[in-house]
Amino acid sequence: MSMLELHGVSRSFGGLAAVDNVTTTFEPGRIVGLIGPNGAGKTTLVNLITGVIPLSSGKVSFNGQSLNRIKPYHAAHLGMARTFQIVQPFNQMDVVDNVAAALLFSQGGHSPASARAAALPIIERVGLTPSAHKSAAALTLAMRKRLELAKAIAIRPKIVFLDEVNAGLNSAEIDQASRLIRELADEGITIVLIEHLMKVVMSICSRVIVLQQGRLIADGSPQDIARDPAVIEAYLGKKYLDKRHGQ
């Protein structure tokens, strides 16, 4: 059974259809790449699913439950996590408190102290233990991206939307992040990876969906997507395609 179903999901801002009639499903435990040129509506789609902005029309359901009027905090309680493209740590708190907050408010419980203790293994897992007591504002960009991941893991998600977690990282850091993402998928968590780095997409995704101008233009294995004329046109333009066919 699919875990997350989108049916005709649309959102327009004024006359602009940012997300236009997207219908698709997500299965448990898979890594799905969500790609598309800048402004294709990838982040908007995630915002629609997690309730940050309401749908103009369409239907979203998660494990059979309708999410149409959901609020973001409710999405977290249902097991949907996301990271932000522009990282949003709680800058005046240390790493432990950042993760503890995610644990405390997604799982319930009353004591910040016990949440802090439970945060430590998650911090270990993303490799931030040496910086556990540093303020989030003092972390490097790579570390802040890992902190975003730690917060996402802390809410014990069923599905995680990773919005460009690899942007701005070097190749060793990307390998580390990719390993962690695979581990999470092996635990049965669905990963939706918004990503511009095709190397990452090709190596870890089992399925890729492509958005262009808010419309879903392709859906398939990474190999099929790389050969799909519509995708090549979206990224490189029609001229490139005509030229290649002319040869």
Binding site: F84, A101, K151
Partner: peptide, 8 residues
């Protein structure tokens, strides 16, 4: 925004 996203 991040606070909402962790369930607050």
């Amino acid at each position: 925004g991040a606070a909402e996203m962790i369930g607050i």
